[in-house]
Each structure stands twice: as C-alpha cells, then as structure tokens.
C-alpha cells in the first residue's frame, strides 16, 4: 500500500513523462508541474486521500506548493 504522499507524487509523475522523481521541497507550482489547469483536480486528489473536506474558496495555495508542505498540512507532519 502506497503512502498518500507517494500516491500524490505518482499522480504528478503520470502527467509528466519528462520527470522521473520529485524531491519533497521541489516547488510544484513555480515549476508548473501543477498549473492552473490541473490545480482543481490536484486539490480534489489531496482532499480524497486525506479525507479532509477542503474548502475550495478559502484554501491557502501555499499549502500545496511542495510535497513536504502537503504532507505537513493534510497528512500530519513528520509521519515519514
């Protein structure tokens, strides 16, 4: 069973054949691995995996910036 962070990473890798791995602190938004067209779907993925009801209108975009921040905010810090 893959961890949530691994599943999230895999979701991104599936959409970017040119990328082989993503470091925990790599900026997903600045690098456009997640761009404005993919962001809603990405947020839904995090919400489903974490079981947390994410309010689309009041989220902090920075919480989605790196794999580490996503893990800290939605999957309990330092689990890994």
């Amino acid at each position: 069973m893959q961890s949530a962070t691994d599943q999230i990473k895999q979701w991104i890798l599936d959409r970017h054949a040119e990328v082989s791995d993503i470091e925990p602190d790599f900026d997903l938004l600045e690098s456009r691995l997640i761009d404005s067209l993919a962001f809603v779907e990405f947020m839904v993925l995090v919400s489903r995996l974490s079981g947390e009801d994410i309010d689309m209108e009041s989220i902090d975009i920075d919480d989605f910036r790196t794999l580490r921040r996503i893990e800290a905010r939605y999957f309990g810090a330092g689990v890994r």
């Binding site: 938004l29 456009r32 761009d35 404005s36 962001f39 809603v40 947020m43 689309m56 209108e57």
Partner: peptide
C-alpha cells in the same frame, strides 16, 4: 461559486 486562483503564466 469560485475556485482557487492560480495565475496562469
């Protein structure tokens, strides 16, 4: 309804 605003570059 509105969604997150991620600026398209």
């Amino acid at each position: 309804y509105s969604g997150p605003k991620l600026n398209s570059i």
